[in-house]
Structures are given as C-alpha cells and as structure tokens.
Amino acid sequence: MASYRNVLRDGLAAVGIAAKDKAGALEAAAGLLAAGAGLDKGRLLVAVAAREKLSSTGIGEGVAIPHALMEGVAATTMAVARLAEPVDFDAEDGGPVDLVFMIAGPRSDTGGHLKLLSKLARTLHDPEFRKAAREAPDGPALARLIYDRD
C-alpha cells in the first residue's frame, strides 16, 4: 500500500499559494515539489505539462492531481499546494481548482505511482476531507490531515 508518510515529506504541503491560472498553479506546485525533493523544476514542469496535454488531471470538486513519471527522481514524491484563489484547470466538472496534489515518480516505479494516484483519488472523493483541507490553518496542519488518511 502506498503510504502518505513516505511520499509527502516535511515542508511539502503549503497553503495560501498565489497563482493566476493553471500554468501558474502548476509552476507553484512544481516549485514546491522540486525544492523539497531536490528535483529539476524545469524538467518537472515539462513532464507534468506533457501529461496535462493528454487530459486534465482536475478530477472535480476543486481538486487536481498533476503527475508525471520521469527520469532523475529517486522515489515517488508528492507536494500539496492549496491556492489562495481557485483557478480554472480544465477540470472534469468545469469548476475551478484550489487543491493541487503534485506527484513525481521514477519510471521504474509505475506500480507505486498508480497505487498512490488511486489512494489519493479515493481520499479526495471524501467531501469531509476536502472541507478540512480547505480549512487547515497552515501547511503542517494540511500534511497531518493527509497523514491521518494512511
């Protein structure tokens, strides 16, 4: 089973992130993930944008899970950015997004990536979790909410 504690490191959940649009939201989340996990932000953005071209990872209810399998990532890692203002994300339900869960993983661990995506989608289908995530006062509190779902 994928464990949130193993993929969401300290400091990789943040609230009040400023972004004007989808590109800005992706850039902000990529910046958070790249800085915390020692990744190349530019390469991460390219990989995530390529995945977004296939179809939006906005799964509805204000949530997006941009993700990418790429070289140069030692282990599957996640960052969570709660935006200060929701942005259009071409989401399934057409609604704006304010909760961005970005995942990067090595191509050698597609199974782990898939398990984490599935677990995250299930967690995020819960309206109580989304409400709590939107009310979390800061990044560490948001991270604790996620860890509680392990």
Binding site: R51, H67, A68, T110, L114, L117, A121
Partner: peptide, 8 residues
C-alpha cells in the same frame, strides 16, 4: 478514467 490517462 482521465486521471489515469498517462498510463495508456
């Protein structure tokens, strides 16, 4: 399921 389109 669009979320998993990257696995095509």
């Amino acid at each position: 399921v669009p979320l998993f389109a990257g696995f095509k």
